[in-house]
């Protein structure tokens, strides 16, 4: 199976956005959320030490999810509203 060419929109928030140096990036060639985590970690060493969760299309996900063209993935540090 070849690498996916789908473009995935990835949003970063809070301390992760600050460390990545961007609030939004596009990734290609990531088949699922696990592959995306690895790709992001390549440009952000130390990501694994940060506490965060992932949402896909504004729904929290806890297991690895397949990604497709047009998906919106967000890296969410612990919430701190209020």
């Amino acid at each position: 199976m070849g690498e996916s060419r789908d473009r995935i929109r990835v949003l970063f928030f809070g301390i992760i956005a600050e460390k990545v140096g961007a609030k939004e990036l596009y990734y290609e060639g990531v088949a699922d959320t696990e592959a995306l985590r690895k790709r992001v970690a390549e440009s952000l060493p130390g990501l694994e030490k940060l506490s965060y969760r992932i949402s896909v299309n504004r729904e929290m996900v806890s297991e690895t999810l397949q990604l497709k063209e047009g998906d919106e993935v967000a890296f969410l540090p612990p919430f701190a509203g209020g």
């Binding site: 928030f13 809070g14 301390i15 600050e18 949402s55 967000a74 969410l76 540090p77 919430f79 701190a80 509203g81 209020g82």
Partner: peptide
Amino acid sequence: LKERLPIWKREIYEDDTHRW
């Protein structure tokens, strides 16, 4: 809301340094 609202805060100190 504290549990579920995707909102983050950056505390800004008097010397303009900050902490998430």
